[in-house]
Design a protein around this nucleic acid. Structure first.
Lengths: 245, 245
DNA sequence: CGGATGCTTGATGTATCTCAAGACGTGTGG
DNA sequence: CCACACGTCTTGAGATACATCAAGCATCCG
């Protein structure tokens, strides 16, 4: 389980470090978040269900999870991927009822963090709020970009865009080597995230391979030509706000 | 211009009042937000463009606006509607570059609020943060629901869902009378928000009329059978979080 | 009167879904 | 150790929902 070896909250450090320079005191304060017990969850199981009352903030440390919504007749839409270092929901605990579900796509490990415990970190290092807020804004930006993708981009463009996004996000937390990264999810998941049938997603993948844009096998994605992939996807990285302000 | 007659920040009071009981001191503090000059913007013009550096928080008081993203080749996706009482962007001013544009769909009026001025209101009435945070969470929830709609719902379901959502949101700010409300935007806008061509949107509208779900003419939408419309849309209002916690 | 803008309709093509089946790998219980 | 179930990827055939292109009409406004 390669995705499980990357432990601790190192990914979080890297993530927040892209928005703001973290000093030792910051790291120390954030490290208290991982003093609690770590949770493990098997692939294809729910971490939280729509309708529940959210009480904790979840910090993913290894594996992939997703936020999804479903319809009474079973149709399902993945609306976000959670990668190591991501908070599943920084603020929802103020709501009385979850409007979406969170599912593990692979085996995952995460910390359940009490809002109060979180508050203590912020009290200690108030300027961290800025980085956390930034993280939230990026999540919102990704959400909007997905809406643009599903609404306007063709399947080929859409999938290309998703792969570039995942590449940048994984690279930001040290989980990409060169132009390759572990893609531990199924084509079914990719289809559900892109609003496509599995059959069509599969054919789109083949088209991408034929076009020499990517290689994908054994859960390893390799981008062959990043510039061309970005061009096909009409990718503009501004929504990831990776530049420190 | 009926949408222009509803002035002031009464809509905002109503909106926040759904999340939290506001007392006179709260209202007084919030009222200082409207002491600045009011801005007016014509229909079909941009209020803010992608790439700009955001510096103000915008509070819409009358008319409709939208958040949209576009692709180099001109394709455009509306990712959110802003109705009277909505903040266009509560937090983006911490980012250095806007990742989306904001456009006026009708003639609109809004206040440009300096973050600092906003901070003063919060310093005065700290518990208002909760209501504002709530407003942000609802916006995020709407965004997710739209993703579900575009990704999984059929055009008929999708449009039905949008109309129910608009009905609830407009009712919340006092802009619906009975089951009717002003829908001051074009079919083109509806198409761009739903990821459909205008032609198909038009035919879907006709299908809805034929099915006895709605009446729509002269920019007035009347819902004929709310329960049936909700049922067609598979509408679950939980994502609007209208219940006080 | 002429030019925008928005709504509507028809005809045609095609992108995408659905249904169905087979191949492959993996884990599990007999 | 084999038989079997299960999950995943792949391919084919057929149906259809949707986009595109094109045109006509109404309204509004200069």
């Amino acid at each position: 389980m390669p995705t499980l070896t990357a432990a601790g909250i190192e990914p979080l450090f890297r993530l927040l470090g892209r928005y703001m320079v973290l000093d030792e005191a910051d790291r120390a304060a954030l490290s208290t978040l991982e003093t609690g017990p770590i949770c493990t969850c098997d692939a294809r199981t729910d971490i939280a269900r729509e309708g529940e009352n959210p009480t904790v903030i979840r910090l993913l440390v290894s594996g992939w999870a997703c936020r999804y919504k479903d319809l009474p007749d079973g149709r399902r839409q993945i609306v976000a991927f959670f990668l190591p270092g991501d908070f599943c929901d920084l603020n929802v605990y103020i709501l009385s009822e979850l409007d979406h579900s969170i599912g593990a796509l692979t085996q995952v490990r995460y910390y359940d963090i009490q809002p109060q415990q979180f508050q203590e970190v912020i009290d200690q290092r108030p300027h961290l709020v800025r980085a956390l807020l930034w993280h939230e804004m990026v999540s919102a930006g990704i959400q909007r970009e997905w809406l643009l993708s599903i609404g306007q981009r063709s399947p080929l463009e859409r999938l290309s865009h998703l792969f570039v996004e995942l590449y940048y996000r994984l690279r930001a937390v040290g989980l990409a080597t060169g132009l390759s990264f572990d893609l531990p999810i199924t084509q079914n998941h990719l289809a559900e995230a892109n609003g496509l049938s599995v059959v069509h997603l599969n054919r789109t993948l083949q088209e991408m391979r034929r076009a020499g844009l990517i290689e994908l096998s054994d859960r390893q994605l390799r981008i062959i030509d990043l510039d061309r992939l970005k061009s096909v996807a009409m990718f503009n990285s501004n929504y990831l706000h990776f530049n420190r302000s």
